[in-house]
Computed example of a mutant assay.
Amino acid sequence: MDMNQYLSMFIDESNDHLQSLNENMMGLEANPDDLSIVQVIFRSAHTLKGMAATMGFEDLASLTHQMENVLDLVRNGKLVMQDFIFDTLFKSLDALEAMVQDITGGGEGKADVSAIVASLQAIVRGEVPSAQGGSAAPAAAASTE
């Protein structure tokens, strides 16, 4: 199958999902306890991940997968949104936008997102810096669910 015929559709839909992600992240930042917004963000990230993987844009798919892992913990009440998590998710969105812009310009959408991925993975492990500079455990991380 020739994926080039789907590239324009991928770019259009990716841009729509990125706009939705940005708008909903700002909405979540204003109301961090609204899990319905987290659900919408998760679905957009999940769809973007699937589209990117189908098109062979592995860096994009990998980053959205790591975002999903964080969002899944939040939507299931195992992680509470904090400034560091918001900052990391917004950095993720900036990187995703840059990758989609690269693809739009004829590039391969590759980017070194290793630092952002490492931050997302640290959040999943419960290594979220607190405002005091220490480490704060995610909500319910100590429980053995």
Score class of each variant (00 low, 15 high):
residue 8 S to C: 06
residue 8 S to E: 15
residue 11 I to A: 11
residue 11 I to L: 14
residue 13 E to G: 06
residue 14 S to R: 12
residue 14 S to M: 13
residue 15 N to K: 15
residue 18 L to E: 08
residue 18 L to N: 08
residue 20 S to I: 08
residue 22 N to L: 05
residue 22 N to P: 03
residue 23 E to P: 03
residue 23 E to L: 10
residue 23 E to V: 08
residue 24 N to K: 12
residue 26 M to A: 08
residue 26 M to D: 12
residue 27 G to I: 04
residue 29 E to K: 06
residue 34 D to G: 09
residue 38 V to W: 12
residue 38 V to M: 15
residue 39 Q to C: 01
residue 40 V to D: 10
residue 40 V to H: 07
residue 40 V to G: 02
residue 43 R to T: 05
residue 43 R to Y: 03
residue 43 R to F: 03
residue 44 S to L: 07
residue 46 H to L: 02
residue 46 H to V: 01
residue 48 L to V: 14
residue 49 K to Y: 02
residue 51 M to H: 12
residue 51 M to F: 11
residue 51 M to L: 09
residue 54 T to F: 05
residue 54 T to I: 01
residue 54 T to P: 01
residue 55 M to Q: 07
residue 56 G to P: 10
residue 57 F to W: 05
residue 57 F to D: 04
residue 59 D to W: 05
residue 60 L to G: 01
residue 60 L to H: 00
residue 61 A to W: 02
residue 65 H to S: 00
residue 65 H to N: 02
residue 65 H to G: 00
residue 70 V to I: 14
residue 70 V to H: 11
residue 70 V to D: 13
residue 72 D to I: 01
residue 72 D to T: 02
residue 72 D to R: 02
residue 73 L to R: 06
residue 74 V to Y: 06
residue 76 N to K: 00
residue 76 N to S: 00
residue 77 G to L: 10
residue 78 K to Q: 07
residue 80 V to P: 07
